[in-house]
Computed example of a mutant assay.
Amino acid sequence: MPTCPKGHQSETDDWCEVCGHRMSSAPAPSAAELCPNCGTPREDLAQFCEGCRYNFVTRAGAVSVPQSSLLQPSRRAEGPTGSPTWTATVRVDHDYFARVMAHSEPEDQGLYVPTYSPDLHIPLTRTVITIGRRHQSTGEPPFIDLDSAPEDPGVSHEHALLVQQPDSTWSLIDKGSTNGTTVNGAEDPISPYVPAPLKDGDHIHVGLWTTITIRQD
Rank of each mutant, 00 (worst) to 15 (best):
P5T: 05
D13M: 01
V155A: 14
L146R: 08
R42W: 09
G201Y: 02
I214R: 02
V18I: 12
T169S: 14
E11C: 01
M23T: 10
I131L: 08
P189Y: 09
P141G: 15
C16N: 09
V100T: 06
P142C: 12
Q9T: 06
P29H: 10
G207P: 02
V155S: 15
D147M: 06
V63F: 09
S25H: 06
T85D: 13
R76K: 12
E151Y: 12
R22D: 01
R99M: 02
V194N: 00
D174M: 06
P27V: 08
V113G: 07
S168I: 05
D174K: 07
Q164R: 09
A160C: 08
S24E: 15
G139P: 10
G139K: 01
W86K: 05
A60K: 15
H103N: 13
G61C: 11
A88W: 03
Q216N: 14
R133Q: 04
L146M: 01
W15M: 12
C52H: 12
R133M: 00
T178R: 11
H21P: 00
C16D: 11
F143C: 00
A32Y: 08
M101F: 04
P106H: 12
L70M: 12
L172V: 03
V183H: 06
S104G: 13
L172N: 00
Q216K: 15
D13T: 12
A62E: 00
G82M: 10
